[in-house]
Simulated assay, not measured.
Amino acid sequence: MTESATEPTIFERIAAREIPARIVAETDRVIAFHDIAPKAPVHVVVTTKQAGYRDVVELAEGDPALLAELVAVARDVADDLADGDFRLVFNTGGGAGQTIFHVHAHLLAGRLEEGSLAG
């Protein structure tokens, strides 16, 4: 784990506007912003504003409505930035490339670059 339970995650800090990001969509509970190291022509991180769920499995079990909202925001971003065609990737666990243990998805559209989708 890269984040302390007492420290806000980088995603919480982006949502609080403590760290700048190119935000493309936002609801009361979800925020989407361009990834700082894109792996595709469109690479947007879609995440919850508040921590509480480490990964998509915890989110699905704990708040399925929030997961549905996250996916809906991803769909809307893809409609706006990629004509609706996209991949939605959730890394779950360090062995799968997850480095920030605050549930988030990578929305990818267009040609993928080589390399992993760490995050």
Rank of each mutant, 00 (worst) to 15 (best):
T27E: 05
V56G: 12
A72C: 02
P64R: 10
A40Q: 09
D80C: 04
T92M: 07
G94P: 00
T47H: 01
G97W: 03
H34E: 15
H43D: 04
F11L: 13
F90L: 05
R17E: 15
V77N: 06
K39I: 04
A74G: 13
I23Y: 11
R22W: 11
V57W: 09
D85P: 00
A40S: 12
K49D: 03
F11M: 10
R54C: 03
A65T: 07
H43W: 04
P41I: 01
A40K: 07
G94T: 14
R87G: 08
T48M: 08
E58L: 10
T27H: 06
E12S: 13
G52M: 12
V57G: 14
R54N: 10
A32H: 09
D85W: 01
A51I: 00
E61D: 15
A25W: 11
A15S: 12
I31N: 08
L81A: 00
V45K: 10
A16R: 14
T92Q: 14
Q50R: 15
D79Q: 07
A60Q: 13
L59G: 05
R13W: 06
V73N: 05
P41G: 15
A15T: 05
I23W: 11
R29M: 07
G62A: 04
A40Y: 09
L81Q: 03
H34I: 11
I10D: 00
G62T: 06
A15G: 04
T48I: 09
R87Y: 00
V46H: 07
H43R: 04
K49N: 02
F33G: 05
D55M: 03
P41T: 01
A16V: 05
A78H: 05
T47M: 08
A37E: 13
A40G: 08
F11E: 05
A74E: 01
A82Q: 01
I31S: 04
E58T: 05
E69V: 05
H34W: 13
E58P: 07
T92C: 13
D55A: 10
V71G: 07
R87K: 13
E12P: 05
V45T: 15
A16P: 05
A40C: 02
L70P: 07
R54D: 13
A32G: 12
R54M: 12
V44G: 01
K39N: 12
L66M: 11
V46D: 04
T27G: 12
A82F: 02
